[in-house]
């Protein structure tokens, strides 16, 4: 049995940071709109491909990130306004519809980009390794870790310190009441679903640089996102962070100790949480 070293712990943390970026969008949409967007994994992959293409053509990583966030936010807008509006209020139909969207998006990506594995080009400034704790570690993965932390802080400030955040939080508690106060809650919902989707796009480009992009990557990210939401509780930012840390670290430990059964490792905490807290660690009954 291999023991864990600093590199592996850092691997777990950086993976957790990426998972948080993706899952925070998922949990935001779930918490506010009560929509379980099963197309979130497909949005991640689609965003990654867009980021790969744009950053490859323009030579700018930042532009790639921007383009992927924009493209996926537009997709999110289309899913919400073009499709989900017809089944509003029927939870099960909404979920299954997004599942259909996931299949279409995934296949569309296969048509456009083919089945090869791509890796988003990392900008020169983030290439190479830095020296920490007596070992060398890739700069880029540390960048992802920092980005994850910034995303958490940014989202936290947005939710707790801005007017939009206050409206989102009020909407989570009682959407009808917010509407009765004369606020267009639909617009808040729309902003949230675009924000949530753009986080998937961001994750796609950032993750595409170190996890690579390939046709089944969407399913893998979706399982992790689901596990994180089940563990953390829907709609909770802190829950998503804790869930991402737990899943990211456990997955890394799993890969070190039983490489072939790594997937199985996230099953454990999920089962334990469900047994004792069916709504997740930070979930609230609605």
């Amino acid at each position: 049995m291999a023991s864990l070293n600093l590199v592996q712990i850092l691997n777990g943390l950086t993976f957790a940071a990426l998972l948080f970026i993706v899952a925070s969008g998922f949990t935001l949409i779930f918490g506010l709109l009560r929509i379980v967007n099963l197309a979130h994994g497909a949005l991640y992959l689609f965003g990654g491909y867009v980021g790969y293409t744009v950053s490859g053509m323009s030579g700018s990583f930042a532009l790639g990130i921007l383009a992927s966030m924009l493209a996926v936010a537009c997709l999110g807008l289309f899913i919400d306004q073009g499709l989900l509006r017809f089944v509003r209020g029927f939870v099960l139909r909404e979920v299954l519809l997004t599942l259909g969207v996931a299949f279409v998006l995934n296949d569309l990506a296969l048509v456009i980009w083919g089945g090869d594995t791509f890796s988003v080009e990392v900008p020169a400034i983030l290439r190479g390794a830095v020296h920490i704790g007596g070992t060398f570690y890739p700069k880029y993965r540390l960048f992802v870790l920092v980005l994850g932390i910034f995303t958490f802080i940014g989202l936290w400030l947005l939710l707790n310190r801005t007017r939009l955040g206050a409206l989102i939080r009020a909407g989570v508690d009682d959407a009808e009441m917010v509407e009765a106060m004369g606020i267009n809650i639909r617009r808040v919902f729309l902003a949230t679903s675009m924000l949530g989707a753009s986080l998937a796009g961001l994750g796609g480009t950032v993750g595409g640089a170190f996890l690579t992009l390939y046709p089944t990557a969407d399913s893998e990210i979706l399982v992790f996102s689901l596990a994180i939401v089940i563990i953390g509780g829907s709609g909770s930012l802190v829950g998503a962070a804790v869930g991402a840390l737990l899943v990211g670290l456990l997955n890394t430990i799993g890969q070190v100790m039983f490489p072939e059964l790594a997937y199985f490792v996230i099953f454990g905490p999920m089962a334990a949480i469900l047994a004792f807290r069916p709504l997740g660690l930070f979930g609230r009954a609605t």
């Binding site: 519809l97 259909g100 299949f103 296969l110």
Partner: peptide, 12 residues
């Protein structure tokens, strides 16, 4: 898969 997805969307 695309046809399946579209069918799912339309059915829903």
């Amino acid at each position: 898969p695309m046809v399946l997805g579209l069918m799912f969307i339309c059915t829903m």
